[in-house]
Amino acid sequence: MSVKTPSKMEKIMAAGHLGVTSECGPPRGSDPEVIKEKAELLKGCVDAINVTDNQTSVVRTSSLATCIHLKLMGLEPILQMVTRDRNRIALQSDVLGAASFDIHNILCLSGDHQSFGDHPQGQNVHDLDSMQLAWAVRKMRDEGTFLGGNEIKRPPEMFVGAAANPFADPFEIRVPRLAKKIEAGVEFIQTQCIYNIDKFEEWVRQARDRGLTEKCYIMAGVTPFKSAGMAKYMKNRVPGMDVPDDVVKRMSDTPKGKQSEEGLNICVETIQRLKEVEGVAGFHIMAIEWEEKVSEIVERAGLLPRPEIN
């Protein structure tokens, strides 16, 4: 795949290296130090950092502002944008705003439903859906026009991504849905956290059979368990999550004091196994409120040092 944007993570994956990303959730307040502390922990061990956009529908500092903080620290942000809170005018406007700071990555999402968050009585927007947003950003970038047709002066140069859940229902369209995202213009995919490796490998195999891994970088999502309780919670409470029983058992068979260590082991083993899977272009490490462990995971998984690319 040829490089189309100045995005560092795009260049790294295009050069054949495994990409590594992690994420940084903005704070529920306006203190920039919180952002900077989290980002500092990720410096040097990942290629780019996702900045979540009011995740789980809880109000936080905006994704765009947080991305700018990261950019000013010399890090590469991935602007997450959900279609829940903004219509096509606001979405395009924020894309331009990000582009004005030379933010070169965007992840297009529909967003968790507001009923999960701290303002369940709010209205949602969903003027576009996540695929339509990806399509819109590609149009802005490649054609240099807004959705309305007018020309953009200095169009955004963004590497366009989306999320995918290889485990979600309905089963019949798991791969067709990926195909559709790619058709919409998605260039990289970050997947839902993977615990059921067999099922994930089967999904990648089917994607490969359709030639999709040639058109799009698939970054496997991983999240280390901090405890057996977290494993059970993810299995039973998080919609669309597939945590096999033996993984939960492995966590709960581990003594309490060593569970977090075991969680990291599972995560590292998962990366090591998936590194060998053809069609996996990188890893997205979501260490939820556990950013200090990302460097350890990356190092133990043999993904250091990160390639230097200009």
Binding site: H113, F116, D129, M131, Q132, G240
Partner: peptide, 20 residues
């Protein structure tokens, strides 16, 4: 659809039910 998505389900579709 709780998010009125046009191009398929979100990641929260589980056993035929909506995440909300």
């Amino acid at each position: 659809c709780a998010k009125r998505l046009f191009n398929g389900p979100c990641g929260g579709s589980s056993n035929g039910k909506c995440e909300i």
